[in-house]
């Protein structure tokens, strides 16, 4: 009895995984018809064209834009956590900060960006110069 139940549950899990692998992207692609990502289609299109890849369907462009956008926002989120931790530590040590936690301003610096990128396996070094 237990064996058959186990087999059934395994089968159900397999069915669910089959559904989640194929199903969502076709549905998701339909939603992209009206969605406008932050990266303009023209910009993504240009960068893709310089690499020799030219999708005619704008939904494919948008899918790629969303991937890039999510990548950057994940990094920015990580950097924000680093920034918050750093500022809270420094304010605790001085304990003289008159500003409340709410009106603190956050600036994205290389100091926060470097550990955030290191978590994604990207090593970043300070460039020698900028033109």
């Amino acid at each position: 009895m237990d064996m058959s139940q186990n087999q059934q549950s395994e089968k159900m899990i397999e069915d669910q995984s089959e559904l989640t692998l194929g199903q969502p992207l076709s549905d998701f692609l339909m939603q992209l018809e009206d969605y406008h990502p932050t990266i303009p289609d023209a910009v993504t299109g240009h960068i893709l064209r310089t690499s020799g890849f030219e999708p005619k369907d704008p939904r494919l462009l948008r899918l790629i834009s969303i991937a890039a956008q999510k990548f950057i926002s994940d990094i920015a989120n990580d950097a924000l956590q680093h920034c918050k931790m750093r500022t809270s530590n420094s304010s605790n040590s001085t304990s003289k900060s008159t500003k409340g936690a709410k009106d603190r301003r956050y600036c994205l610096t290389m100091e926060d960006l470097t550990p955030a990128l290191a978590e994604f396996g990207i090593t970043i070094r300070k460039p020698q110069y900028y033109v």
């Binding site: 932050t38 990266i39 993504t44 960068i47 893709l48 310089t50 690499s51 020799g52 890849f53 790629i64 991937a67 890039a68 956008q69 990548f71 950057i72 926002s73 990094i75 920015a76 989120n77 950097a79 924000l80 920034c83 301003r105 956050y106 600036c107 994205l108 610096t109 290389m110 960006l113 990128l117 990207i122 970043i124 300070k126 460039p127 900028y130």
Partner: peptide, 30 residues
């Protein structure tokens, strides 16, 4: 994107690095 995340300002170096990163990411993907 950074403002949406919760930052108020960004260093010029960090901004330039992120621009380079997103461009590289898109080219690699394509």
């Amino acid at each position: 994107i950074c403002m949406g995340t919760g930052f108020d300002s960004i260093e010029k170096e960090a901004l330039a690095s992120l621009v380079e990163l997103i461009q590289c990411y898109l080219s690699e993907l394509s």
